[in-house]
Computed example of a mutant assay.
Amino acid sequence: MRRAIQYLGVCEQFLALCSVRGQFPPPPTMPTLPSPIWLLTVYGYDIMTRLEYKARITSTFGSILKMDSTKKVTKKLAGIASDTAAWVTNVGNEYGQVLISVLTCSEGAEGLSSMAAGLMRRYRLAGVPPPQLIYVDRDCCNRDGVSKTAALFQGWGQLVVRLDIWHLMRRFAAGVTTESHELYPAFMRQLSLCIFEVDSGDARRLTEAKRSQLEGKHGMVGLTDAEVIQKITREEWRLHCRRRTRGAEETALLIQDLL
């Protein structure tokens, strides 16, 4: 009974408050719209602030380029942009900087002719020497002597076209039944060792640093070089050691022995 009386008392106060109409101030007056001249002026200032960024992007060059195409980005396009492009092609330099990135409907000379012409024009207008070498994922060779990539960049007559090493390894792995095979990672690892070698000086310094770390922090004393090398992670090899190719003759012999 006590709780019912309390509830009815609260309801009575609530109804009394609702019976009084609230006083609301009138809405503010709408400000006058700016003139078209003012809008164009603001738009012009906004464009001028972006010119510096465009200049920085288009001022990236390189003497060794790498061109690669992928479908992974275009598959993520949704809405109106869905199915508007099939390939994303990126061109980077030896420092990992991206020179240009385009969306195309086809891969090869048909879809990349405008990109190649614009890239050659950029070098020419900036007075920068043309690149000496370009790595590609396809169209690097031709029995007639001129590859499709060389014909695409015909303005750079001295440009050397080579197949990227990763895609070269993929050519060897094409004969494997499936990538999920238990021997596939081991085969690719051995194939990488046939092509690349670690700088001996960097490897020696990394081994000494790892030995000092194991002795100081973990108390592991008296380890052999082989045991220390086993403790070095893959990320440490990539971070502290430079890699280089072994050379055509040595690589061919090692791959032949591997196969």
Rank of each mutant, 00 (worst) to 15 (best):
G79L: 12
L206T: 00
D139Y: 03
G222Y: 12
Q158M: 10
L99M: 03
R189W: 13
I255D: 02
V160A: 12
R162S: 15
V161H: 00
E94N: 07
A81W: 11
T149C: 09
P28V: 04
K148W: 06
P26G: 12
G118M: 02
A4N: 11
T29E: 15
Q213R: 05
C11N: 13
C140G: 12
A117E: 07
C141L: 08
L8I: 12
L159W: 03
S200Q: 09
A81I: 10
G145A: 11
R205F: 10
V228K: 00
L152A: 00
V161S: 00
C18E: 15
K76R: 14
L183E: 10
V176G: 07
F196P: 02
L168P: 04
F14T: 06
A203Q: 06
Q190S: 13
D137C: 05
W156C: 02
T60A: 07
A116M: 03
Q6M: 15
A150P: 00
K76Y: 05
I64Y: 07
G155C: 03
L112I: 03
L39W: 06
S63Y: 09
L193S: 09
L254G: 01
R189A: 06
E215P: 02
P130A: 14
R171F: 09
D68S: 04
C18T: 12
P25L: 07
M1F: 15
G145V: 07
S192T: 12
M169Q: 11
P34V: 01
G9D: 08
G247F: 01
L168Q: 09
A174P: 04
T149F: 00
A78P: 03
E52T: 08
G79F: 04
I5F: 13
I255S: 04
C140D: 06
V91C: 05
M220L: 09
L77D: 04
F187R: 02
C141S: 15
D225N: 13
T149A: 04
L133W: 03
W156D: 00
T29H: 13
V128Y: 05
D46W: 11
A209G: 11
H181W: 08
C194H: 00
M120V: 11
L152F: 01
E236I: 06
A203P: 00
L168K: 07
G145H: 08
Y43I: 14
W87H: 08
T251F: 02
L119G: 00
E52M: 13
G118Y: 08
P26S: 13
I134C: 02
C241W: 05
E208T: 12
Q6I: 13
E215K: 14
P131T: 01
A86I: 11
Q213M: 10
W237G: 01
K217F: 09
R170P: 03
F153I: 00
I100P: 01
T74L: 01
S192F: 11
Q190I: 03
T149D: 00
P131Y: 03
L40Y: 10
C140I: 04
Y135D: 01
N93M: 04
V146S: 12
V176E: 10
D137T: 02
T49V: 05
G92F: 01
L191R: 02
L168W: 07
R211Q: 09
L8S: 11
L193P: 07
G111Q: 06
P28H: 12
E179A: 08
